[in-house]
Simulated scan of single mutants.
Amino acid sequence: MNRLTQMLGIERPIVQAPMGWIARSQLASAVSEAGGLGIIETSSGELEVIKGEIARMRALTDKPFGVNVAQAFVRDPGIVDFIIGQGVKFVTTSAGDPTRYTRQLKEAGLTVFHVVPHLAGALKAFDAGVDGLVVEGGEGGGFKNGRDVASMVLLPLVRSHTDLPIIAAGGMLCGRTMAAAFALGADGIQLGTRMVSAAESPVHANWKNAILAARETDTVFLNRQGPGPALRALRTAKTTRLELEPGPNMLAEFGRATDLYFGGDMEASIALSGQVAGRIDAVRPVKDILDEIMADYAAVRAGLPA
């Protein structure tokens, strides 16, 4: 137990990333049941579907879970009222200004963590009154800041400026990376790519197999100069082309996202992925993943030199 597990009411300081269309009840309930914290996404914008996913979460687990608000992708002005109305107790906010929703969420009694890619974002979130931070290194998958900073640099930098609880994201995979994150100032870790490849992940086997086949060099960082967000994804013919010749609207490339996510057409859209894909070699159940992380963490910690 540490202050993060106590704050969130969970057994293990492991949080599942809120990936659009993927972070729904099937995966999130498995994470919560295994002692971590499952997160339901809203970045797909399908709020009526999300309402059903939250109801299914309560049918699948009585353990704590949370919801993410990715502000750049969910523009429904009623999103906070929607989340409060669902009885959710923990929220992460991302891809936007932490002052936008923090006060309203906290006044309703929710715990709020904001996702930050750099120190300036962390300080702004601190001033906004958040309860904690998700500090996201540039080696992670998904939508990123174009001026990316690796977790090895970012975590201790943010920790040196705040005592808020920190969840480390980007490069997190195993007990060894958990131990490293804790040494750098984190209180927990967030798993994204590892959860995409988990047995309970709803994505097509083609995507999972592409992760298993990937080397540590098989991701691309797209759209660094904008407009819009940058992102890290698996290398495919499509993303290699976009790396060399970015289009005018990167978000338009997600128009057929579900054909990739659930249909298995790896060229239909962009398969977001972190560099840890190069270390994943098997599709495994969520519980096994979390069990192994905790066992490996204990072994690594015990084996560290004095």
Score class of each variant (00 low, 15 high):
G171I: 06
A180V: 02
R301N: 11
E46W: 12
A237F: 02
S94I: 04
H204W: 13
T240G: 07
I40Y: 03
A128S: 14
H114V: 03
R279D: 00
A199Q: 12
G185I: 01
S160G: 15
L272Q: 04
R100H: 12
D265A: 05
V49E: 13
A298G: 07
V80H: 11
G66F: 12
D265I: 00
L184P: 05
S269D: 02
D163A: 15
T236F: 08
V115F: 06
A28S: 11
V49I: 11
M152D: 09
V149N: 10
V116M: 09
E53I: 09
L60I: 11
G263R: 02
M294L: 11
N2P: 00
M294R: 05
R301C: 10
G146E: 09
G9L: 00
D148A: 15
T217K: 06
T42P: 01
R147W: 08
A72N: 10
G185Q: 06
D296Q: 15
R103D: 09
P117W: 03
I270M: 08
T162C: 09
L184E: 02
S273M: 11
D281Q: 13
D296P: 01
I167R: 07
R100S: 12
Q6N: 08
P77A: 15
Q275T: 09
I10F: 08
R194L: 09
M250I: 04
F126C: 13
I39M: 15
L157I: 08
D76P: 09
L231E: 08
D163G: 14
G20C: 06
L8V: 03
D97A: 04
A72F: 14
E245I: 01
A210M: 13
A282H: 13
A30I: 03
E200Q: 13
V283T: 09
P248S: 05
V88R: 05
L47K: 13
L212C: 10
D148F: 14
A181W: 02
R235H: 03
Q190F: 05
G228F: 08
M195P: 01
V276K: 03
G140L: 14
V203K: 08
E107L: 08
L234F: 10
K238H: 11
W207N: 03
Q16H: 04
I83N: 11
V196N: 04
K287L: 01
Y261W: 08
G66L: 07
A277D: 01
V283W: 07
S94K: 08
D296W: 08
G20F: 13
F126S: 14
N145S: 13
G263L: 02
N206S: 13
D148P: 00
G87P: 10
V196P: 00
E292V: 08
S32I: 01
D81R: 14
R56E: 12
I84Q: 11
D259L: 01
P165R: 13
G9K: 07
A179G: 06
E46F: 13
I84S: 11
G35H: 07
G170T: 06
K106C: 07
A122H: 05
F254W: 03
I22H: 03
L8H: 04
D163F: 10
V158S: 06
I280E: 02
Q6C: 00
I84R: 12
S29V: 02
D97C: 06
T5H: 10
A180F: 02
A30C: 00
N249P: 00
I167Y: 04
G228A: 06
V220G: 01
S25T: 05
D148W: 15
T240D: 12
P285T: 14
K208L: 13
P98R: 05
H161R: 12
V130T: 10
